[in-house]
């Protein structure tokens, strides 16, 4: 009976925690349940939400992608460069004098610039995946190197300067509110739907679970693992690039420094959502709740005007606590 109660708790516990957190937030700050704050909360959460979808894919195969924060920054500056017609003149720093350059001279017409940036993001993810799969190096270490490389690339590209000016269509992605719903949230929702479709309703997605759960069992069932190990990292890189584009819209500039440390929020959200770091367990539903929980904690800490630094400490503790709870649970299950 106790086991049943526990499994119920692990099935629905997350949702209960979310509800409790909402209640606490409302009690702590009267500002919480205002339309402005809720809109702000949901659009803030959306950025992490989109990254977390990619991270869910990666964690499902037992990997981790630390490079997403850097890819956000790289995509942002890459997009900015595309807007200023200088993409092919990658030159030493002095030549780049972008300050005040708000006249847009896009190299590619509208949908293609976005597609191009997304493809580059996907390519970076692909590199993560291939190196980690081919050389059997855990993706956390490959993506750690990638994180440093991509950030260095992004920052040195414009000597750390932001590139101002983005087209209205991109600003709309960040600030638009069709039907009163913030655009980032809509993008997040669409991505979630696609992700659920892939993970839950295609054989491809189910095979990702199989490979993450037990590579050998998957192989015996006639699945070739390497494709399913590389694909999630591509998704993660691609979605990070998407976040980078929307962030450019939000800030009105391409900023190479944006996204620093965001990978940890994404990891935290996925882990809180119940995914196992050893792979094979987790899903978009859990991740959405994880993102909302992380977002709520951020939002409330901001409303209570807690400094950024204790906030960071809290995140470290939340990650460890979520993992510790998982560890204790799985230890108990395996003892049965």
């Amino acid at each position: 009976m106790k086991g049943k109660a526990l499994s119920l708790l692990s099935d629905y516990g997350l949702f209960v925690i979310l509800v409790i957190l909402v209640a606490i937030s409302a009690l702590l700050s009267p500002l919480f349940f205002t339309a402005a704050n809720l809109k702000n909360f949901i659009s803030q959460a959306s950025y992490n939400g989109i990254l977390s979808v990619g991270m869910t894919f990666v964690i499902l195969i037992g990997g981790i992608d630390l490079s997403v924060g850097s890819i956000v920054g790289f995509a942002s500056i890459l997009y900015g460069t595309l807007m200023h017609g200088n993409f092919f003149t990658f030159m030493p720093n002095e030549i780049f004098i972008y300050k005040g350059a708000t006249v847009l001279t896009p190299i590619l017409p509208l949908p293609f610039d976005i597609i191009f940036v997304l493809l580059i993001g996907g390519l970076l993810g692909f590199l993560n995946g291939v190196i980690s799969s081919r050389f059997h190096i855990h993706s956390f270490i490959v993506s750690l190197c990638m994180m440093i490389f991509v950030r260095g690339l992004a920052v040195s590209y414009t000597n750390g300067q932001p590139l101002f000016g983005v087209p209205d269509s991109i600003s709309y992605l960040a600030y638009g509110e069709p039907l009163g719903i913030p655009m980032p949230a809509i993008v997040w929702l669409i991505i979630c739907i696609i992700a659920v479709w892939i993970l839950k309703y295609t054989r491809f997605g189910r095979r990702i679970y199989a490979v993450g759960g037990d590579e050998e069992a998957a192989r015996l069932s006639g699945i070739q693992p390497s494709l399913y190990q590389i694909f999630p990292l591509i998704v993660s890189g691609l979605l990070a690039a998407a976040v980078g584009i929307i962030m450019s819209g939000r800030m009105g500039c391409g900023d190479p420094k944006i996204g620093e440390g965001w990978q940890t929020d994404a990891i935290a959200a996925v882990v809180i959502g119940g995914a196992s770091l050893s792979g094979g367990k987790g899903g978009i539903g859990g991740t959405i709740i994880g993102v909302l929980i992380m977002g709520l904690i951020n939002n409330v800490m901001n409303l209570l005007e807690i400094d950024a630094y204790p906030q960071q400490m809290a995140k470290g503790i939340i990650i460890i606590a979520a993992l510790a709870i998982q560890g204790v649970f799985s230890a108990r299950n395996s003892n049965d």
């Binding site: 440390g261 960071q312 470290g316 503790i317």
Partner: peptide, 11 residues
Amino acid sequence: FAATLGSMIFI
């Protein structure tokens, strides 16, 4: 790596 990543952020 996960435990030390968490403590890295915290510390």
